[in-house]
Amino acid sequence: MSSTGTAPNTVVELVGVGKQYPGGVTALRGVDLTIDDGELLAIVGPSGSGKSTLLHIVGTLDRPSSGSVAIAGHDVAALSDGRLSALRAQHVGFVFQAFHLVPGISAQDNVAEGLLYSGLPRAERRRRAAAALERVGLADRMDHKPHQLSGGQKQRVAIARAVVGEPDLLLADEPTGALDSASGEAVMELLHDLNKEGATIAVITHDSEIADRLPRQVRIRDGRVVADTRQARTSGGTGADARTDAAPDSAPGTGTDAGAVAV
């Protein structure tokens, strides 16, 4: 990460983003979202609320039906497939609920795949992959194939693959969704540590407990942002909405943070 240290740089800037899927489903409506360099935030909401859709649009895997998206200062709408791919290769890292490791190749090679489209020579890719695996605590599992790893280890390999290119933004879609609580805990801890080292991370989750332990929560419901703890200038009306809408899936302990913003 190459943050200048003075004013925070904006990594993600979504303005009025809407998404309609073919068949008439409106997954997102009028979403404004700004993520600054060095942030660690949760995008939280019930299943079907549009979190994954939002992540795909932020990650430039999909384009919005309306509104504008700027990632790392690039206006996504203006980019061709080739440039968009380069944007992902250089600026965005993904972690998926289902890991999506390539079967049959070692952990080190899986992580090195994260640099395949970056233009680095193979030896350098493997060297950096080894360092990234070491960083996530899997130095002793370099040569293990995915089927020889536990779920938590697989997810840590996937995280190493996502961060090995030092992206400006790490997007994690339900990273603990397929893990037992202990492994999930370890994965969240790793994300916290990476954030302390400077990584900008957005974690998607339906689990308020996980969300509430992150510095910032963006609550989403029926495709709308109903609360965002960053928005100090939120109007009273939106805040009331946030309160009522977010209430059903808010755990008891979340009251303080959410309330502080809403009021």
Binding site: A72, G73, G82, A89, Q90, H91, P103, G104
Partner: peptide
């Protein structure tokens, strides 16, 4: 923030060979 010019990197012939044969090696 890096605001590098966005141009996709080319795969070397060896990388193309590797990626192309990966699907065969497993089956």
């Amino acid at each position: 923030m890096r605001r590098t010019a966005l141009s996709p990197a080319r795969l070397s012939a060896r990388d193309v060979f590797h990626v192309g044969s990966a699907g065969l090696r497993g089956r």
